[in-house]
Design a protein around this nucleic acid. Structure first.
Lengths: 223, 223
DNA sequence: TCCCGTCGGTTACTGCGAGTAACATTACCC
DNA sequence: GGGTAATGTTACTCGCAGTAACCGACGGGA
């Protein structure tokens, strides 16, 4: 059941004595699509090294371990995704507006960086990361942005206690819903990014919004 | 950075010539907590075999590969989780009622089967599965239950078109939000299951409910 | 100009753990 | 009691992560 290992799609022109920063870029450029397509375990370090026009010990010299290489790929993807989101947040202040544009930014980013997305939150078949720490960090950072927004709004309404208890978990739920929708999208790629964003808002914004206005859903009385 | 490999916490009394079904149980019982605690890659087949009072080739005889062993653990966990959910759904017919009790059932199951949950949807540090197919299947099955409920309700309101376009992705989003909340819970285990379920309903039920009643969220007009 | 240190790079290994071939031993059933 | 299927073992192969040890070019000083 071993994955077929084809030639890496990104192969770098073979030059000797390339400066470290540049060589690291090359390695990451080779590794990212490989990890995205075949997943962590069925990519070998030799393969990445060869794709970058170099031999294995160089990869270890620069990234320490295979795990380090993977984490570098994922961390960089996470940084870029979060940066996109932060940029979007900086342009919108009203809560709903900010959320909508943020979610939209995420789905547009996914569309433009499918491989990076696959490495971060990859589906079973293709990506899939044993070392999900960067993905978890990215989720946390995205959730934090939402959490802060919620806390501000709640405190402005005199609901500081609600903010402390529920803002963070709700924000995590929101982010999870977004990522889940992103996963679903990977299997239905014909749909536009806007529709996914709209569905996330449809699904989760009412809930978040209601909480921020002090409206709560009451469970049915037990029979 | 190699994980410390302690003795497996489940070790089976050494008996010779145990029937296959029983030996398989033993192997799974040993493997599950190991995978849950240390993740797929840092558990060795030898270790599981030893814990089950047997040698490696027996594991291969019964599960085919390490991956097969892992998938057996995860599939069985998924089956049980979904069974719980289906049992709950059979007891409640009204949409909101059914959803509430379903979500509640999930969180109660998580509380009682933390290791199985970790193997299925495990967080980075602890569980974490390179082969997420069983987890994806479980998500799909849970989403399908919700999808069907939504489709029925929508069609009953004469909104068959909405049902076809949006029921499935919204249901996946709902499930993702639930799983995300479950992950968050693992890091805040002092809270009760009911609170997690309440938050999921708070977050996502308004959205699903609105859609089922034909209410939609309208994005802000672009400037 | 020569020498020397650093940086980019290699060859050639070790070692662990997945996976297997081939063989051994009981239990059961006719 | 003898054949056979199921349970089990020993003793390997092999791929790949990770490393030790060494190599050669370039850029400063002195």
């Amino acid at each position: 059941m071993r994955a077929v290992k084809s030639e890496p799609e990104v192969v770098v022109e073979r030059r000797r004595r390339v400066p470290r920063a540049e060589r690291e870029e090359q390695m990451l450029a080779v590794a990212l699509p490989l990890f995205a397509k075949r997943g962590y375990h069925s990519v070998s370090v030799d393969e990445v090294a060869a794709g970058a026009g170099v031999t294995k010990p160089m990869v270890y010299a620069y990234f320490g371990s295979k795990e380090g290489l993977f984490e570098a790929c994922a961390s960089r993807a996470a940084d870029r995704l979060v940066a996109e989101l932060e940029a979007s947040a900086a342009h919108h202040t009203e809560a709903g507006d900010r959320m909508w544009h943020g979610v939209l930014a995420v789905f547009r980013w996914i569309a433009e960086h499918r491989e990076a997305w696959a490495v971060l939150y990859g589906a079973p078949g293709s990506g899939g990361s044993p070392f999900a720490a960067p993905a978890a960090r990215a989720s946390d950072r995205m959730a934090r942005l939402i959490t802060e927004q919620m806390e501000d709004t709640l405190r402005a309404h005199g609901m500081g206690a609600v903010a402390e208890q529920h803002a963070a978990p709700m924000a995590h739920g929101f982010v999870a819903a977004t990522i889940g929708m992103g996963r679903w999208w990977m299997e239905h790629p014909e749909e536009p990014a806007e529709l996914q964003a709209l569905r996330v808002m449809q699904l989760a914004w009412n809930g978040i919004g209601n909480v921020m206005e002090g409206k709560v859903w009451i469970p049915p009385a037990p029979r």
